[in-house]
Design a protein around this nucleic acid. Structure first.
Lengths: 173, 173, 173, 173
DNA sequence: AATGAATGAGGGTTCATTCAT
DNA sequence: AATGAATGAACCCTCATTCAT
């Protein structure tokens, strides 16, 4: 992967995240990346190919983020790390996550569910903690943190810390 | 409002909901509405004006949906109706809600927060029920049902009823 | 000629004069005239018909302006009145003359030469005054005052009075 | 400047001169230039940009034409060359001048006055020749030749040579 | 006489993509 | 690997004109 390829991915990621996939022209990507328009197509075939490359790159990063949660052995720790996940997004990661959420709504064919491993891990944790219906609890929590992620990215929380604390408390953490 | 205007709004609503705003050509809207393309611009000025008309129409419907919740006097009933809200979307309303969610991510300038009235109502309910931090509880619940709405629209729940039951139970309902 | 017809002619005249014929939409004319778009076509057939009506109306006014010059008996007076013509345009006539000049350049088929009667009158005057080549002198003077008209309408003269005085002097008036 | 760019300018110049700026579609320009329509916008941004390019090109040519007059040292020669200017337009230059005149009336914002240098030169010449009011004489002559130019382009002179001769004679040349 | 909803052709412009260099 | 000139389809929008009322 040459430096220019990296620049293209970086520029496209930012633009797709802020403007959206359809609203971003390849010419804009080229300009922002400091690269000729033709090069994008040389490297990624077409606009969809460019998107794929970004999505694949994203999948790795997401799996990495979840891996840290999953590898916890203490079930309480699994829950805690899961809940803390959306609240710990750093400034650099911000754009990246915005892109993930945005594309989830913009694209017709949903990128495959990347939550699957987390789901199993949560189910196991709830089971160990003696919850009645661990599967549904896992579903519930996953949707909760997805919702939190969305709200945080759109700045809808007056005080994120309070929400985090309340959530942890609800799970006895 | 003539019949053709209605047709345009209907067609545009459906297309924006399924394809997205940017990905939908005005020519497609015209075709689907059985109308000349020029008429769209005669009535709504431009594509953004068409979107506005849809959004305004949507706001009315959303407020109506929430009004039913807010007018409950029993605080427990307020909570119950709030939680049941996303699970009671009928087939006809489905497209409409999909559009609302989709646009929330696609558009740069967020349509104003339509949840405000619900927020106050929930805060009051939690307060009456003796919750420690009613404001944060309201925030929490709103985000929860927003997340549920998104998940339902994308078909991410294996068994919605179980989720609903679990949620009600968590709130002692 | 109804009042609305007058309004249309008035509005169209002003718009054609300031914006140009091609750059003026019939919808703009209708709006300015306070009239429905359809009415223009009811009365004038099409946009070209509207232009024709204006042009014909204009011809009358122009002939009237020249008639005053032509009916002079003293040849010196014919010259003087001819020269004074462009400098005596009042504010109300301003728009009208601008239109005439503008259309002369914008339209492919030139409206017929309205100067013919003036030409004969000038030729006769120059002849009586003993000029060597009266026909060419008439051509010359007509072009001179056309140029002056154009310059005045575009505000290219620092001091119109001086130009007028100089011109009169050159003709011994 | 590639060859295709030249073709576009050439085609646009001719069409703007004969049909007018507003009445000329960019698709027509592209067709005449043997070029895709998109290329016009790649190179000139928009239709107005294309016009600007033509206008700037024109300014150079006009200045060149006047430079020849201005560099004369003999004041009589300055006058003579000024008067001869409009009568010496060759067939190739014809289109170009027609465009200049046409745009002067069609465009709202007048292209800057290109006559300024000639004006100073004429004022000086009249002054040297002992004319009473050189400034007004310069204004007068400039308007005269502008009028002649317009008349020649519209073919309003029965015998241009006679007009030229008469004009020279009036200035004692 | 008058309206205004409705049309369809065409306008300027953007965009993903190709290709010679 | 990289450029940038070039394309053609599609896009949003405007306009003169028609027609039912």
């Amino acid at each position: 992967m040459t430096e220019k390829q990296q620049n293209i991915l970086q520029a496209a990621g930012e633009l797709f995240a802020t403007e959206g996939y359809y609203a971003t022209a390849t010419s804009k990507v080229a300009k922002k990346a400091g690269v000729s328009e033709g090069l994008i197509f040389k490297h990624f075939g077409n606009k969809a190919g460019l998107l794929d490359a970004i999505l694949q790159d994203g999948e790795k990063r997401i799996k990495l983020a979840y891996a840290f949660v999953i590898m916890q052995t203490d079930p309480k720790e699994v829950l805690r790390k899961t809940i803390e996940l959306p609240f710990s997004i750093s400034a650099e990661e911000y754009e990246f996550w915005k892109l993930q959420y945005k594309l989830k709504w913009e694209l017709k064919e949903q990128p495959q569910d990347k939550m699957q491993p987390l789901y199993f891990s949560l189910e196991e944790a709830f089971s160990q903690l003696g919850y009645e219906d661990p599967a549904t609890e896992a579903d519930f929590l996953i949707q909760l943190i997805e919702g939190f992620g969305a709200a945080l990215l759109k700045g809808q929380f007056a005080d994120p810390d309070k929400i985090k604390a309340l959530t942890l408390k609800k799970y006895g953490l």
